[in-house]
């Protein structure tokens, strides 16, 4: 049903785009045959087809101003996007028919190459936006809002510290220093400052469930349970040395007197849990070195690390999902500007 509904949504645009291409190709061929000349862009069909293609490109570029005006609800986005995709795809063949199936000079070749880049990047974006979100839904259960990954990681680190403190008491002296997260803790529970341009907006942090795994890092440790002090020292030690630096990597944090983000990054690069397989192996060893009573704690810490690994994967996926837009948009802008120059020059030197 979903497929049928989607097909119905796209079908009109597909038919219209194909009809434009077929009509253009037929007219250009008929005219060339009638005039006994090879088809050109300056012939009547060439100019009309070129104008249609230029009009479509203008419509494609209107996607941007449309976003500024979306509050006016000019046209349903889904229809606009369908038209954007299929009419946009039609511009390639239409431009090629307009050119008389030739690349022409340097300038027209540049235009064609730019159009090709725009089309390819658009196709790539379209495909990746169909495939990747589905993959993320199935493979990244800890997925959160990408811009909030650092905050969520800090929150998770705070939770882990709390869990270890509840289970084993405060971090023993002599272990590696942990960054000061007190300010983050207060921000999370109170108000935050969001920078928007020059403005600073005080925003209230509200609760939001960010994961489908309801257990997740929930602390279910009974404070009355018996825990081995040795386990506690070992887990605190490993937490401070390996787990938290990995969970908080890339976040600028204060280590008191002598730490920096650089140190964090360096630490995380050398981390023995930087990949999933390494993590499994490492936690397996950690589990072996602890008594059975500490196993639930180890499991929670492993989940914490797993969450961070998924956030990294999510970040990479986001790059794939949105990285192309910058290229697509910039080449479209160049194409749009050069198209104006092309029209002026073509009319002058036709």
């Amino acid at each position: 049903m979903l497929l049928v509904r989607k097909l119905k949504l796209h079908l009109g645009s597909i038919i219209f785009a194909c009809a434009l291409i077929a009509a253009g190709a037929f007219w250009q061929a008929w005219h060339a045959n009638h005039a006994n000349r090879s088809p050109t862009g300056s012939s009547l069909p060439g100019i009309v087809i070129g104008s249609v293609a230029a009009g479509i490109i203008l419509f494609e570029l209107l996607l941007w101003p449309r976003k500024w005006l979306r509050r006016f609800r000019l046209f349903p986005t889904k229809y606009w996007m369908v038209a954007h995709i299929w009419l946009g795809l039609a511009t390639g063949p239409l431009a090629y028919i307009h050119s008389g199936y030739r690349l022409g000079g340097t300038f027209s070749t540049t235009l064609m190459v730019l159009l090709l880049f725009v089309l390819l990047s658009g196709i790539y974006g379209w495909v990746i936006q169909m495939v990747l979100p589905r993959w993320m839904l199935g493979n990244l259960p800890y997925e959160t809002i990408t811009g909030q990954i650092d905050d969520v990681s800090i929150q998770a680190a705070l939770n882990a510290r709390r869990m270890l403190t509840v289970a084993f008491g405060p971090k023993p002296e002599g272990l590696q220093k942990l960054p000061n997260l007190d300010s983050f803790a207060s921000d999370m529970s109170g108000a935050v400052t969001v920078k928007k341009g020059r403005k600073e907006i005080k925003a209230i942090v509200i609760g939001a469930v960010q994961r489908r795994d309801t257990k997740g890092l929930n602390i279910e440790v009974d404070s009355g349970s018996e825990f081995n002090a040795e386990d506690g020292r070992e887990l605190w030690r490993q937490y401070a040395m390996v787990i938290e630096p990995f969970v908080l990597r890339g976040i600028p944090l204060s280590y008191g007197e002598a730490t920096s983000t650089q140190t964090q990054k360096e630490t995380s690069l050398k981390s023995p849990i930087s990949t999933r397989q390494k993590m499994i192996d490492w936690f397996s060893m950690l589990r072996d070195s602890c008594s059975s009573s500490a196993q639930p704690i180890v499991n929670r810490l492993e989940k914490l690390t797993e969450q961070r690994l998924q956030y990294d994967a999510q970040r990479r996926a986001q790059s794939w999902l949105h990285g192309w837009i910058a290229f697509h948009a910039s080449t479209s802008v160049v194409l749009g500007v050069l198209l104006v120059a092309h029209i002026v020059l073509a009319l002058k030197y036709m």
């Binding site: 811009g147 909030q148 905050d151 998770a156 999370m188 969001v194 509200i206 609760g207 939001a208 469930v209």
Partner: peptide, 14 residues
């Protein structure tokens, strides 16, 4: 238990 996020996260730097 809930992980808290900013309400105006979409206005933050992207």
């Amino acid at each position: 238990r809930a992980v808290k996020i900013e309400r105006f996260y979409h206005k933050a730097f992207d």
